[in-house]
């Protein structure tokens, strides 16, 4: 994890307001599409509050838009899950997972952590940090072909992991 993350946290980051001005429309549009206009407003608040909370410890000022959309995606998933759970809360029925259930964040992180080192790093760079393949290749000092292969192999293993 130390390869591309040498900078001291918080240094070189633009003023947070800058991100808000640049990306608030993208985030709201994304959330509206994912969870509908009503839930989008709450997800929008949670996304930006979570981002602001984490911002000073961010080590990398690159691809802040990808970072924000990753947070938004997680908040949308939480909201969808909460909405699906809501009727069950009243009836106090035990929640049972359907066969097509997707991995939740914790499970997914666990599965990613279980990948071999290079694949894990490549998958994180691709999907958490939203890098393109040349970016992953540069970050890991490999060829672009190797970067693609690492991501591809990693995803293949994660698919097998599906519940």
């Amino acid at each position: 994890m130390t390869d591309v993350r040498r900078r001291r946290p918080g240094t070189g980051l633009p003023p947070f307001q800058h991100l808000l001005d640049l990306y608030c429309a993208d985030v709201l549009r994304f959330l509206t599409r994912r969870v509908g206009p009503l839930a989008a407003d709450d997800c929008f608040q949670e996304t930006w509050l979570a981002a602001l909370r984490a911002y000073p410890s961010l080590r990398d000022a690159e691809n802040l838009r990808g970072w924000l959309l990753t947070i938004a995606r997680n908040k949308a998933t939480d909201a969808e899950r909460a909405a699906a759970r809501r009727p069950l809360v009243v009836e106090t029925l035990p929640e049972t997972a359907g066969p097509e259930r997707e991995l939740d964040d914790g499970e997914l992180m666990g599965a990613v952590a279980g990948l071999p080192g290079k694949q894990r790093r490549a998958v994180e760079l691709r999907f958490v940090e939203d890098r393109d393949y040349p970016g992953i290749a540069a970050a890991m000092s490999t060829s672009e072909a190797a970067a693609r292969r690492n991501v591809h192999e990693g995803i293949k293993k994660l698919r097998r992991h599906r519940p």
Partner: peptide, 24 residues
């Protein structure tokens, strides 16, 4: 999908207020 600018403004204002409230 388009997002109206007044809705955007409200959402941003609400966020800035909670951020200040929470000392963030």
């Amino acid at each position: 999908m388009t997002v109206s600018s007044s809705r955007m403004r409200d959402a941003v204002a609400r966020f800035s207020e909670s951020a200040a409230d929470q000392g963030l």
